[in-house]
Nucleic acid binder design. Structure first.
Length: 313
DNA sequence: CGATTTTGACCAGCGC
DNA sequence: GCGCTGGTCAAAATCG
């Protein structure tokens, strides 16, 4: 929850020591190319250019890190404000809500950012099977969609099977219940429902973790447990229904009492969007796939740049 | 024809 | 115990 949980140090694989090998490798490659072109370029000159480029990238990395730190600080302060708001509203909500205790426990964990519900027995299914302690990682994904799009489809790279649909009391939009197509070997379930406050937002609640890779790697990865995902995020065009997506992982209720019940239903749409914006950097920096892809993209640009320079010389 | 979706019925938790 | 509610089941319908 704390911003300290967020590693603001973007490892872009461009630190000098790490990059040194690439530089040396590039040196040998360019020497080969130079030989092929039958043009002799002083190695020291190229070395200087590369070092200069490396310094430039390092300074960019530093700037990005600073920007990220500022973003995280802003996020932290906003989160504190949000928690205050939630605790104020929870008193009124508790009087009118008839939610199940178990569900309240689930949503007590909402707007957490680094924990894993599975470490205790207070997770989603424990009320059904009190003797079992099922590990169920719960996370909420908000997907911005076209309000005229009535489908309840959240493309997250996995294949789902719908097994039910209900209209819930506190939301006029139907809620779809889906299981991973690999069930029962994969226990992951998800619920998809439009936000009552903002119909352009689709709320997908994931329960559990996938124990397999994506079914369709060509689709955009929005999975809450990126550790189970295959490598880098695909580059296919965004789907019509997913213009922007943010994942909120849920955390342990430690330090949070019942006064945080169902905060998502107590905040208005602008607050949600603010939270989502603040959530993005934390989610992105936690996502190894994202940082790896970013590093690959940057290093790719550097390589291209160097190759162009080599060709010029 | 197998996989998926739809949809009404059923079950279980919770508050009164 | 009863009613309300969310979640799940399973048969029928639909799709590719």
């Amino acid at each position: 929850m704390e911003s300290s949980c967020v590693d603001t140090n973007l490892d872009l694989n461009i630190n000098p020591f790490h990059h040194r090998n690439k530089v040396l490798k590039r040196e040998s490659e360019s020497q080969r190319e130079v030989a092929d072109c039958d043009v002799k370029v002083p190695v020291k000159q190229e070395n200087g250019v590369l070092v200069e480029e490396l310094n430039r990238i390092s300074s960019e990395n530093k700037k990005l890190t600073e920007m990220l730190t500022v973003l995280c600080e802003q996020y932290n302060s906003l989160q504190n404000q949000f928690m205050e708001l939630v605790s104020k509203n929870s008193g009124n909500e508790a009087a009118t809500s008839r939610k199940r205790k178990a569900e309240c426990e689930d949503y007590t964990n909402m707007i957490g950012f680094s924990g894993n519900v599975g470490s205790t027995c207070s997770d989603a299914e424990s009320y059904k099977k009190p003797k079992e302690c099922i590990k169920a990682k719960i996370s909420i994904v908000y997907v911005h969609i076209n309000p005229s799009d009535n489908s309840l489809i959240v493309r997250d790279g996995y294949q789902w099977r719908k097994y039910g649909q209900k209209v819930t009391r506190d939301n006029p939009f139907p809620r779809a219940y889906l299981k991973c197509s690999f069930a029962p070997s994969c226990p992951v379930k998800k619920k998809v429902q439009r936000s009552a406050e903002d119909p352009s937002i689709l709320v997908a609640t994931y329960e559990g973790e996938h124990n397999h890779a994506h079914h369709s790697p060509a689709e955009l990865s929005l999975s809450p447990n990126s550790s189970a995902n295959p490598r880098s995020a695909p580059v296919s065009a965004p789907t019509k229904s997913s213009a922007a997506t943010v994942t909120l992982e849920l955390m342990q209720p430690s330090g949070l009492g019942d006064d945080t019940k169902k905060p998502s239903q107590q905040i208005d749409a602008p607050a949600i969007q603010q939270i989502l914006v603040q959530q993005m950097p934390a989610s992105l920096t936690r996502d190894l796939n994202f940082t790896a892809a970013l590093a690959a993209a940057i290093s790719g640009r550097v390589v291209d740049h160097n190759e162009r320079e080599c060709q010029v010389m």
